[in-house]
Every structure is written in C-alpha cells, then in structure tokens.
C-alpha cells in the first residue's frame, strides 16, 4: 500500500477514481453496459493520439498538430478509398504511414532545424487543416466504404474492437519506454538534452523519432475517426491536440520533459472522457462542457507547474544542504 502511495500512478489514479465515483453517484446511467462500451469508443481516439503527445512531451517538446493532422489524414484516406479505389487495408496502412511522414516533417523542423516545437506545430495546426480543405473542394466525403464502420463498431468477445487497439498500442508504448534503449533515451533527452548529447546519445534523432511516432499515432486516430462516421472531413479533430496534451499532463507528464509515464496518460485520457460523458448524461450544454474541459486543462497544467515549483524548491533546498 505504501509502495502504491509513493508510485507516480497514485495521484492521477486517485483523481480518476474520484471522477468515476462522483459521476456514478450522480448519474446512475453511467454504469449501464451500453454507456460503458460507448465510453470505450469515446476514449479510444483521444487516448491513442495521446500516446504520441506523451512521447513528444517526454523529450521536452510539444505537439499542437494532431487535431489538424487527423482532419488532413481522414480526407486523404476517404478520397483515396472512395474516389481512387485504393483497397481498405492498403489505405489504412498508407494513412498511418502518411501520419508518420507529417510527424517527420515536424521533427525535421524542430529537431534538426531547431525551430521551437511550439512554433512549428502551431504552424502545422493551421497549415494541415488548410491542406485538408484542399481535398474534395473542402467538402466532407461521406459513405467511404461499406466495411469501414466495422473497424470502429465491431466487437470481439463482446468487447468493442477499439478497446483492443487501445490496449495493444498502450502495451507497445509501455514496453518501448521501459525496455528499449530508444525509450530510455527519450527520458534522457527530455531530462537533460545537454547531458544526453555529452553521454553520446543522438539527441536530435531521438527528438525526430518522437515526432514520427506522434504522427503515426495521429494516423491511427484518423483511421478510427473516419471509421466512426464512415467519412472524412476537414472539420474533424478540432481541439483534439488539447485533449491529448491534457491527458498526458493530467497523467503527470511534465511539460519540461523527462517525467511522465504512458499508463498515466491513459488514466488522464479516461479522466477527461469520463468528465465529458458525465456532463453529456446530465444534459449539460456543450458550451458549458467546453468551459469545463478548459478549466480541467488549466488545473492540470497548473498542477504541473506547481509540482515543478515544489520540485525546484526541493532541489534548491537539497543543493543548499549538500554544501554543508
């Protein structure tokens, strides 16, 4: 119990349990099987995109682009399947790969050309959506493929398929961060890029690859988004980058880099989606919902800042102590 209390998972998990308890108590319908599987569908896209955001944040970067990247990618996906006749499995792989290419572009600008990630991905937030509007005269593409919805609404063993994607991708991300040299290097680069370079790590390559992963995660998100409504639209994914970053930060990832873990990001994503779901079930107007989500982001980032501050104070005190 003591070990659990000390573990970095404790605080976000407690927050999540609190949110679940409050929602379940105030809204009995919350625990209906139908609602729970609906919840799994809702959380899947945000949570998968948040994997990418977490990788970038861990290296000390930030990615504001995935919402717009998803709009662009759903359009490319929908157009290529419906109008160009690309087979569905091929189109899916191509969309994920193209996501990786978009990430590579941002990685090139941020890691190798050293333009701050905040700027490059803010530019991409604007530009990617602009490109999305260039397809199909800016109109959404509906009824992309008859089999497409199965990807999102299908079930296996009575559980929604997106739950399986989610678990598989989180397991993979967890493994990469914990058991691969690349994952360890991500933490090292985020913790102290200068020391990482002097320790022989290829800092820029690692930052670059984090963006590629974020782009590919957005690609997976785009396929699910397209499957959900059997369509592609330049208006998809608005604000998704904020939910994804918020998921990471609520989960305790530090925007300064080097601190955070992927399971906590999943907890963060669940927290956001459950709050949204609870508000929906209580017929809270969308306008109020967006304010609540905004407040949650501020509180989460505030907690990140305070935690840094506390950590900084602690470090100063210990530095002070060491000189004696």
């Amino acid at each position: 119990m003591n070990a659990l209390a000390k573990s970095p998972i404790a605080a976000p998990l407690l927050a999540l349990l609190l949110v679940i308890a409050v929602t379940a108590f105030s809204t009995p319908r919350f625990l209906d099987t139908g609602n729970l599987s609906n919840l799994a569908l809702q959380v899947s896209i945000v949570a998968i995109v948040a994997i990418g955001s977490t990788f970038v944040i861990l290296t000390g970067g930030i990615d504001l682009s995935p919402g717009s990247a998803i709009a662009l990618l759903t359009m490319v996906f929908a157009v290529s399947v419906k109008f160009a006749g690309v087979p569905l499995p091929v189109a899916i792989l191509l969309t994920i790969a193209l996501g990786g290419v978009l990430g590579a572009l941002l990685g090139l600008l941020s890691a190798y050309l050293r333009i701050p990630a905040f700027i490059t991905t803010l530019a991409a937030l604007s530009a990617f959506r602009g490109v999305a509007f260039m397809f199909n005269n800016g109109s959404p593409v509906f009824s992309v493929h008859p089999a497409l919805e199965t990807i999102f609404y299908g079930t296996a063993a009575g559980l929604p398929l997106p739950l399986f994607y989610l678990v598989a991708l989180y397991a993979l991300a967890w493994y990469v961060l914990k058991y691969t040299a690349f994952g360890r290097s991500i933490y090292a680069v985020g913790g102290n890029p200068g020391a990482a370079a002097l320790s022989g790590l290829s800092v820029r390559r690692i930052q670059f690859l984090a963006f590629v992963i974020a782009g590919a995660a957005a690609g997976v998100g785009a396929v699910l988004m397209a499957a959900r409504l059997n369509s592609g639209s330049p208006n998809y994914g608005v604000g998704l980058e904020l939910s994804a970053i918020a998921a990471a930060v609520i989960g305790g990832a530090s925007l300064a880099g080097g601190r955070g873990n992927i399971i906590n990001t999943l907890i963060g994503a669940l927290t956001i989606v459950i709050v949204q779901n609870g508000l929906n079930l209580n017929a809270v107007p969308t306008s109020v919902q967006t304010v609540v989500i905004g407040a949650i982001i501020v509180i989460a980032v505030g907690i990140d800042m305070w935690r840094n501050e506390l950590g900084g104070t602690l470090q100063r005190l210990t530095r002070f102590g060491r000189t004696s």
């Binding site: 360890r184 290097s185 933490y187 090292a188 985020g190 913790g191 102290n192 200068g194 020391a195 990482a196 002097l198 320790s199 790590l201 080097g258 601190r259 470090q315």
Partner: peptide
C-alpha cells in the same frame, strides 16, 4: 548542467 539527469535515479544515470 551537463552531466546529470535529474529525472533519473543513480542507476539510470550510470547506464545511460
């Protein structure tokens, strides 16, 4: 500034 990873324990600082 240039040597240590303050987000790591000693062990990870040694192996990096």
């Amino acid at each position: 500034a240039d040597g240590l990873f303050f987000n790591f324990a000693g062990l990870q600082n040694i192996s990096v």
